[in-house]
């Protein structure tokens, strides 16, 4: 089951194991220049607000009510990354209960570029594995490179869904989560217990049906990010009754008219952020094997490329940047101790 708490989706699978809990939230971030240069990781500027679809059902198109899930408001001037967290159960010996997650936009898989399916595929791998994958900022286009998730109106021919399927039907983000099989986890616990023993030895207007077009996600600028190979293998994942969620993306007007709530503050531009000397991030993952990137997704036109093809001027936001304040981190986790 999935619950929504503090703008986080909390996926719990007590039917498989009491420790099987996974949290997913959506972080607001800078829209990096779409200039074919690769950029380091931008910061997280807070969680996007989320609302239950059925709380605003009377103001939403019937198709959205049918999809269920949650609503997320997004400016076109900002970008989004998906943040993963596996909270440690107080009784657990290992740090987290591993999960495999498939992320799609407009029912196009963001890792493989293939159309939506309910089961995980290993060849090519179409899912990310937690805890090794701590976030996903965009479409996996090449080994070590992603194209940032940026929002575009569905029907404008920019979204990954439209470029790959030729249709503008779903938009939004789709998530499906598979916890590790109980017996696999218990083996991890056993190994952890053993290693502990060993170490001890050593020491306004409602949205009418016609306005049902929400936002979809398109490919933005290039960013340096690795999508890691599944270290456990496809057989590790429990695919019975996986937890799914449809995240509908709304523009500011749609958000206000359907929820009656105000939008978050307008986003910072990447150039303002960089000019202020604020940090960007680079992750050193060592020798962890990572995916080659999807040939299908590599063929996607980025938003700037599409604009040029449509005869539009390249936006000023795409002016190249040189982030000077780049932090190198080996892990994104701030370790909390006992205090």
């Amino acid at each position: 089951m999935i619950e929504l708490t503090e703008n986080k989706l909390i996926i719990r699978r007590p039917d498989i194991h009491q420790h099987a809990v996974c949290e997913v939230d959506f972080q607001r971030t800078l829209r990096i220049p779409d200039d074919n240069q690769s950029y380091p990781l931008p910061p997280g500027l807070g969680r996007f607000p989320l609302e239950h679809v059925e709380d605003h059902a009377d103001r939403l198109p019937s198709q959205w009510r049918k999809h269920g899930g949650v609503l997320l408001p997004m400016y076109q001037a900002e970008a989004l990354w998906v943040n993963f967290n596996l909270p440690k159960h107080p009784d657990a010996i290992v740090d987290s209960y591993p999960f495999a997650l498939k992320i799609a936009t407009g029912k196009v898989n963001a890792v493989s570029g293939k159309l939506w399916s309910e089961i995980p595929e290993s060849d090519p791998q179409d899912y990310v594995v937690l805890p090794s994958q701590q976030w996903l900022d965009g479409y996996c286009v090449q080994k070590g490179l992603i194209r940032q998730f940026v929002s575009m109106p569905l029907g404008s021919e920019f979204t990954a869904e439209e470029q790959i399927t030729g249709e503008a039907v779903y938009g939004g983000i789709q998530i499906i989560a598979y916890p590790m099989k109980r017996e696999w986890y218990e083996k991890l616990e056993q190994e952890a217990k053993q290693s502990r023993i060993d170490s001890d030895d050593f020491c306004v207007e409602f949205m009418a049906e016609a306005q049902c077009v929400g936002l979809g996600l398109a490919a933005g600028g290039l960013m340096r990010q690795e999508i890691y190979e599944d270290e456990y293998g496809i057989d590790a994942w429990d695919t019975t009754n996986p937890s799914r969620c449809f995240v509908h993306i709304l523009n500011s007007e749609q958000w206000k008219s359907s929820t009656g709530k105000s939008m978050p503050t307008t986003p910072l531009s990447a150039s303002d952020y960089t000019d202020a000397g604020l940090p960007w991030f680079e992750v050193d993952s060592g020798d962890t094997p990572n995916l080659e990137g999807s040939e299908i997704l590599r063929e996607l036109d980025s938003v700037a490329t599409k604009e040029i093809k449509f005869g539009k001027k390249v936006l000023a936001e795409n002016k190249p940047l040189k982030p000077s304040n780049v932090f190198l981190c080996t892990s994104n986790r701030v370790i909390d101790g006992a205090w």
């Binding site: 619950e3 049918k66 899930g69 949650v70 029912k107 937890s243 799914r244 449809f246």
Partner: peptide, 15 residues
């Protein structure tokens, strides 16, 4: 133990 923690579920639909 599960009944004691009744929470609201995010509804999944048809898609």
């Amino acid at each position: 133990h599960a009944v004691l923690r009744v929470v609201r579920e995010v509804k999944d639909g048809q898609w």
